[in-house]
Design a protein around this nucleic acid. Structure first.
Length: 211
DNA sequence: AAGAGGATGAACT
DNA sequence: GTTCATCCTCTTG
């Protein structure tokens, strides 16, 4: 469990998100704080697990081969917007779009350690006490944070946006970062083997391995 | 116009 | 470990 150090945060800016190295960015997002302001409620959590997706070469990426569709179009925008889509008809998965315009890169946030707005998160998840599953897994954390596919394309940079990411000085040591293949992409051929999943060692909010 | 399948989670046995 | 809820997007005809 990571201890939160200070409350002061510096919001990640345009140049941060426009890095072309999405794999390094996925690693770097561990320890950053994801904040949402939805329906007048503020919720936040420390990013514990993230995966990089990189068009055009990555077969697991929705924008593989630079395929543009209504859904994937926001992935081609300049880094610093949200890409949120519905999975299995039920779950809304939250991604951070990165890279320069035309580069369809994104980072799926898979787990958070809750910080603020616990009561709201419990209510949204229909839970009566805190359990790790509250923000463990991409669908779970999106529900807790109030994310919805209708928010896809929202900027994470402007002051008026309701979703953003802060650096609050939390640093995850290299020894505490585990990398491995991404979850649920085994049908992506050689891309499925890429070690583009990153998570914090021994943190209880890391999503379970799928059988 | 129709059908398959998915970057999952919860509730079972 | 297994099942299944649930629906939108994309592919194919």
């Amino acid at each position: 469990m990571i201890k939160s150090i200070g409350k002061r945060g510096k919001r990640l800016n345009q140049s941060y998100y426009q890095s072309s190295d999405v794999v390094s960015l996925a690693r770097d997002l561990l320890g950053k704080v994801l904040v949402s302001n939805v329906d007048g409620h503020t919720t936040s959590g420390i990013i514990i697990e993230a995966e990089a997706y990189r068009a055009p070469d990555d077969r697991a990426c929705h924008a593989y081969n630079d395929r543009r569709t209504t859904r994937t179009e926001v992935m081609f925008a300049a880094g610093g917007v949200a890409y949120i889509y519905v999975c299995y008809g039920i779950h809304h998965l939250f991604n951070v779009v990165t890279g320069v315009p035309g580069q369809a890169h994104a980072i799926l946030i898979r787990a958070l350690q809750p910080l603020e707005g616990l009561d709201i998160m419990l209510e949204r998840r229909k839970m009566d006490r805190l359990e790790h599953k509250i923000t463990r897994g991409p669908g779970a954390l999106s529900a807790a944070m109030g994310f919805h596919a209708s928010m896809s394309g929202q900027s994470l940079i402007n002051n008026i946006t309701s979703i953003y990411i802060e650096d609050r000085g939390i640093r995850i040591a290299g020894d505490d970062v585990v990398s491995g293949p991404r979850i649920g992409v085994e049908s992506a051929g050689a891309s499925a083997l890429l070690p583009w999943r990153f998570y914090v060692r021994q943190n209880k909010f890391v999503s379970a391995k799928r059988s």
